[in-house]
Amino acid sequence: MNIVPDILARYGDDLLDGFLVTLQLVFISVAFGAVLGALVCAGRMSTSRILNALAWFYIALFRGTPLLAQLFLFYYGAGQFSGFWRDIGMWTLLRDPFNCALIAFTLNTAAYQAEVFRGGVLAVPSGQWEGSAALGLSKRITFLRVILPQAALYALRPFGNEIILMVKASAVASVVTVYDLLGETRLAYSDTFRFDVYFYAAALYLILVETLRRVWDVLERRLTRHLDMRRKPDGPIAQHE
């Protein structure tokens, strides 16, 4: 008797390969998106009117339109100008649907992350800026040494949520023939018409999302433990409740 369902015996490896592709898509685009997002956030918070408007437009455009449409624009739109890309030697890069998905996801998550970072910086009380100025710290040092460490803590939770959103959103890559987890699942389904492959794929997605959520809970609790006034058993607030 075999305890592994036959469909997993046949397609289990493919699903795991797809799972790894999903992980790559998400983590690479979130990492690049963080860099670009920081730049967009800097533009959005700058005093320059033009930079501000450009950053606003970038954020509103990428957050206000479907990721699938953005993906189509980059994937099929890049193909339209293949001659140009060939001339500048970029075609081998853009021909691969994985790279197109990566570009679309990076630009998309950068817009969301810019707002996450901005929210973090704005959440730091303005007294921190004033206090630092009173101590004679320059703006640059104030930002790097005083504001940024606190902003990072405020941004931690929304940043984790953004990674989870990207895990879910990355499934649209399967539409442009990227064999991520959903792509492999669709392939297995079209081979066999066995509906249960979808359940295994769904389980993998749920495990990934729940793991991320729990890791973030632990991270947040650890990194903010110096702030936790309600900490049992002798936190000052806890005593009075």
Binding site: A171, V172, Y198, A202, L206
Partner: peptide
């Protein structure tokens, strides 16, 4: 809620579409 918040919308759509059809 945990399931439908955690699943990619696209896989939910496929499961509803093929599942209900079957």
């Amino acid at each position: 809620t945990t399931v439908f918040k955690g699943l990619p919308e696209l896989i939910t759509l496929f499961m509803v579409y093929y599942g209900f059809s079957m």
